[in-house]
């Protein structure tokens, strides 16, 4: 039941009590760029892509609740320029090589960058040394592609009830860690059917043996009509369609 409407880029958006700006907009078919949010998982507010102007004040659309009569601006030149900068920061922070990535064409980071018109990561690359963990029989963890969105952390903790993942370290040295003394994914309780495996927006967590199964041209984001805000579905997480 609608609790009222607010204005998003001049358009009236109905919302339900307690709903965030991002969720209400998505329900109305309006996409606000974001990477660290998926319906069904607790809002996080870390990627900052969904920052919007709420009555002149800037805030994340995924953590701010909609209120009747509020005026929200999202598709402004300035905000999109900032979003482009954020995506570029994510690209140089990790080691993202789209041509060799199984997730290409199904990757939300890549797709968000395309939608923002990114032609170059622009900043000086950090080229960090990060570990790839292929120990698990069914899942590979490629930390070079991790953007620290914590979707897997939340999914494993709140949906799978397993606490397989967490973020260790601080600042630019923050990294995805797993729940085992050996530090190996194989020694955790992760199973290939876990929600945590599906939610990764990039190619950091992939199911094995399904990479490159879908030819270029038929991958999810090769079909131009797909909305970014749709929840990642089974199969998509590993580059399938």
């Amino acid at each position: 039941m609608s609790a009222g409407t607010f204005t998003l880029d001049g358009r009236a958006i109905p919302f339900e009590e307690g709903q965030t700006i991002l969720d209400a907009a998505a329900a109305a078919g309006v996409d606000i760029p974001h990477l660290c949010h998926l319906p069904g998982l607790a809002p996080h507010g870390s990627c900052k892509l969904c920052t919007v102007s709420i009555g002149g004040r800037l805030g994340a659309a995924c953590t701010n609740r909609a209120a009747a009569g509020m005026t929200v601006e999202s598709e402004t030149a300035e905000l999109n320029a900032h979003r482009l900068t954020l995506v570029q920061m994510l690209f140089v922070e990790g080691n993202h090589f789209c041509p060799s990535c199984e997730k290409s064409g199904a990757c939300r980071l890549q797709e968000t960058a395309r939608r923002l018109g990114m032609t170059t990561p622009h900043f000086t690359h950090f080229f960090p040394a990060r570990d790839l963990d292929a120990s698990h029989p069914d899942v590979v963890l490629e930390r070079n592609r991790c953007i620290l969105c914590e979707l897997c952390v939340r999914a494993s903790r709140d949906v799978d009830g397993k606490n397989v993942f967490a973020i260790g370290g601080r600042g630019i040295r923050a990294r995805l860690i797993v729940n085992s003394a050996s530090g190996r994914l194989a020694d955790t309780a992760l199973s290939a059917n876990d929600r945590a495996v599906e939610v990764c927006p990039t190619g950091a967590i992939l199911r094995k043996r399904v990479g490159f199964a879908v030819p270029i041209g038929r991958r999810p984001y090769d079909r131009h009509d797909i909305a970014l805000s749709l929840p990642t579905r089974r199969g998509e997480g590993a580059g399938g369609g």
Partner: peptide, 11 residues
């Protein structure tokens, strides 16, 4: 633009 495949040797 990114170093690409050759840059995968960077680490």
């Amino acid at each position: 633009i990114t170093g690409g495949i050759p840059a995968m040797r960077n680490n």
